[in-house]
Nucleic acid binder design. Structure first.
Lengths: 127, 127, 127, 127
DNA sequence: GTGGTCTAGACCACA
DNA sequence: GTGGTCTAGACCACC
């Protein structure tokens, strides 16, 4: 069970994100087996087809492999995992910088804003 | 005419972004009139319905006002514009930090990555 | 309507093949619009979801583009089309040679067999 | 052990292909005994059920015979072996010609492509 | 009108 | 048991 879904983006993409992040962070190890389509479906409260779509997406990204009659596994190809990790990092950074520039912020305003936000978070945690 | 659209996100949202950014950056001034729905549609190579939807979106955000029979104008309420500007900045920063944390990066890795990216851009521009 | 499906391979793959071939042979021109998902579904006597899967597959191969609210179009990027065409040709040739070698045929036996087959076809047509 | 499997087609079919080819090429002689299901399973790193299915398939093609309590043997009926060999050859040739025609290649383009491919292989081997 | 997502539930092939 | 395909039909977002 657990976790709910944001109705404004497709469930299969949200599931995809979550699993991808857990793999990239190493929470789900290399070569490890993911829950079966049916199990994850029940577990997430969605239809098996939706999970299947999620797994297909992950497979197309190359970070997951399906084995007939056996299950779905995290790829053992660490090169791919590293590549995905790097690409995502770059993409997020690029998007961030781009958005801020589009809004007319200078690099220093951008960095100041970021640092201030991090400060605030730290303070909240310390309280 | 001008600029093309990324087929993976709705056109009306992309148009919205562009106009919003131009307003926030002051490129389109306070109280200034936006092009008519029809003109912008032709100009952007887009269906008028799409422009209408864009303007509606901007109106709901409060940064634009429709005056019957006259056209669409940037709000003269600078408080709103400032608020939108700040909210967007916060939202982008928050999203960025959140995404990077989700991927398992520490704050310092995040900042390092960002600085390195900015370096690369600067270098490319200098060439 | 028309054409039936071989029950031993997935319908969406068979549809995919047919459309791909028609595009590659130029029967469906560059930039041309494909039938809508619903229309092709009715027309082929299959479920719309199946057609959707077909179109998604073609999109992933890069030979088709979907446009929101407008329809599905053959890509206008001839480079991709040419690339696909060449890759398929190579793949078929390679598979053929490989299979024949696996069966223990020499290159000349292979060519002889092929030429003889082509002869037979020609003769049949002439009758 | 030995050889790995392509995850995109059933293992039992791949095993089938390999054994069939070895028989057709005479690598496994007429009347010769095949390894036991269990041995081949271990040897191939595959589930015994899969080997069983493979042997069943070969038996249905008539190129293998099961003898209760004794094992699985290559048929001694050379007529069948010759027939299978010819049928396969024809099937491969036919499939190749058909695929190339479907893609819109003429007979001469087809032969040219094939010869060129064979050239390339030869060259690579000579290096 | 277009394509996109999701569900419920059937049936199949594979290991 | 696993994943894969397919259907029927609903609802939505976009143009």
């Amino acid at each position: 069970m657990a976790e709910t879904f944001n109705p404004s983006t497709p469930i299969y993409l949200q599931l995809c994100e979550r699993i991808k992040n857990r793999i990239i962070r190493g929470e789900i190890g290399i070569g490890e087996r993911l829950p079966s389509v049916r199990d994850l479906a029940i577990d997430s409260g969605v239809n098996p087809n939706t999970v299947q779509r999620t797994y297909r997406e992950l497979e197309e990204m190359g970070i997951v492999e399906k084995r007939r009659g056996q299950g779905t596994y995290v790829t053992e190809n660490t090169t791919i995992l590293d590549r995905v990790r790097d690409e995502l990092k770059e993409a997020h950074i690029k998007a961030f910088v781009h958005e801020m520039r589009e809004m007319g912020y200078s690099v220093s305003e951008m960095l100041d804003g970021l640092n201030q936000y991090l400060e605030n978070i730290r303070r909240e945690r310390d309280e």
